[in-house]
Design a protein around this nucleic acid. Structure first.
Lengths: 340, 340
DNA sequence: ACTTGGCACTCGGACGTAGCGAGTGCCAGA
DNA sequence: TCTGGCACTCGCTACGTCCGAGTGCCAAGT
């Protein structure tokens, strides 16, 4: 009974604080919500909530503000993800539908997400290791130089140039191309090393050195720090309500955002399913203690390509943001699955 | 005589203001510099400089601060580009030398520049239209799908996927590959449309539709908004001295930086030769009225690939920044010329 | 024709005081 | 368990004062 009302009060505090950006007091709370009790009663509840660590007051005789713990409870128990409105959905569809090629899809996505949520949007490129090989192409640039082009089913293209230890003839190259594709086309990239390991032994001894060199590069392309690419948009959104949203300054936040590797780890941890939220101090990275991250995986059903999401102040509209992130992830997954 | 001293005074004001970040008064000026005259004399000169619009006072009875016009004169007449120190040069060389591939070169460059200047660094990808074609590759993904891969002499790789109107056999594809390369390999991309225009007429009628489709995509890849790729680093530097450096807020600046197209136009205008500086209000883009841009072209001697530079507050160390920008541009040009 | 010391003046910033008001905690009574 | 009442806290704003850095101007000196 009283517990229920306390939760209602917390929800009301979060909602009011998010929308007004001012500490909320007992009086304004009863005015703006139908709680059916007097301010004095609310005050008792608030005192209890404060004891339990869900809210706090910036200074004595000011209203209450949710703590990280308060936001956490709100997100977990007190709110439901808000679906986008029909016009919003149509806008997404229209905007992303017009994309040609993976780069375009990713770029449009990150912009869209930034605009929709009015936060900093981050989109990770489809991970190589979690995709399957569509095609491998070997292009002879000169007698001792080969370009390796790798195309995945998510439409991502990766290329490297290999300096060969010796000369490789065009028909050897073509033979090799066939062998590569025969072995790994359609398979997950993660399996490639195993599928290719005995390739040098399968070819003529005189081209073996060249094959090894190419193979080494292919494997390196597949395995090494290749998930590192992220795109960002909407950093200007950080500077909108600065003093109010980020206590110290936005400097540490901007710094954290520049460390793409860190970002990837944070976003990578968005669980397999649905939207993941990390609030303020929950965040492992020091610079992001004043920020929250809302992220999710995207890709074809069951096998996410990669993650996307947003970074914003802890004081944000979680239900709306989560809805936007989820919706965008779904559309992108859909579009990439359709082939680009 | 007196004119000379006035310029000395202006230079001293700029230097002091840049290093202390405080309006500079007549007394501290004579203390910090060997001007050989009394504060009163300096005051007269300052009054004159103010009349001419080179300096201004934030409020009555405060020291003077350079105006955009003052910085302009300082950059044009009163300063010389400061060469980097030997250790700095070695650091650049070491850091950029380890790069493999164009992406890596560009990424390292932008980070390096941001760190060196402690400003926001911007690097434009080598322009397609100003490079020459090294190789064109056509990859058959399926019977009616071809991937076009374009490699330039700056190491940039661009790819598109074409849906064909009809079926194209593998040997037609191979024939087409030879024709494409024969016509445009080694030529500037800008000339490609001319060199390729009659290609459909040169092939068998039954593949003409397919060739036209591929050609259209190639031309589109070459011509259309392809210079748009820029990389940025060091945005956190904007938030270091905020209130002091950017009067209103950094919001408009961040916004401007997100409009990559705008940035490209600004950086593109860096004259053919040497370092170009655009100060505060000189800047066409409203959001950058509180910022200065230091940019230059980079690439092989005489034919720049693209531009790079930095964006920072008008109050910056111009000689040092210009030196860093110029040095980095040279090294990058050198590295790209050596082949990647 | 410049330069210089002197001097009155201006004005922003720091500091202290006072009053206001939003908001609280607590208590006694319903 | 809720409610109205009441004393209390404390940040914010306004106001008055003072201080000092820095200026502009002027008359005298070189």
């Amino acid at each position: 009974m009283i517990e229920d009302r306390k939760l209602d009060v917390l929800r009301a505090i979060v909602e009011d604080y998010v929308s007004t950006n001012e500490p909320v007091g007992s009086k304004s709370l009863v005015e703006r919500h139908q709680l059916g009790v007097s301010p004095a009663t609310i005050r008792n509840d608030m005192a209890a909530l404060e004891d339990e660590g869900y809210i706090t007051q910036p200074h004595t005789s000011a209203g209450r503000v949710p703590t990280d713990k308060g936001y956490r409870l709100f997100v977990d128990k007190l709110s439901t993800v808000k679906p986008l409105s029909a016009p919003e959905r149509r806008a997404i569809e229209g905007f992303l539908g017009g994309a040609v090629g993976l780069d375009d899809v990713v770029n449009r996505t990150v912009r869209l997400l930034a605009q929709l949520t009015r936060q900093v949007a981050v989109v990770q490129y489809p991970s190589l290791s979690r995709s399957a090989v569509r095609h491998v192409e070997l292009v002879g640039l000169s007698e001792t130089r080969v370009m390796v082009v790798l195309i995945t089913d998510s439409g991502r293209v990766e290329q490297r140039i290999v300096e060969l230890p010796g000369v490789l003839r065009e028909d050897d190259l073509s033979d090799l191309r066939t062998r590569f594709n025969g072995r790994i086309a359609g398979h997950a990239l993660a399996d490639a090393p195993m599928l290719l390991s005995d390739l040098p032994e399968a070819v003529e001894p005189d081209v073996r050195a060249n094959v090894s060199a190419i193979l080494a590069t292919v494997l390196e392309t597949l395995v090494e720090h290749v998930d590192e690419r992220v795109v960002m948009a909407g950093t200007a959104n950080l500077a909108r309500g600065t003093a109010l949203d980020f206590p110290g300054s936005i400097h540490p936040v901007l710094e954290a955002l520049e460390e793409h590797v860190v970002l990837l780890r944070l976003f990578g941890e968005s669980g397999d399913r649905d939207v993941h939220v990390s609030i303020g101090g929950e965040n492992p990275h020091e610079g992001l203690h004043t920020a929250s991250i809302v992220s999710t995986g995207y890709g074809t059903e069951g096998t996410p390509f990669a993650s996307l999401g947003i970074v914003g102040p802890t004081r944000m509209d979680y239900p709306g943001t989560m809805g936007a992130v989820r919706a965008v992830a779904r559309y992108v997954g859909q579009i990439l699955a359709e082939g680009n």
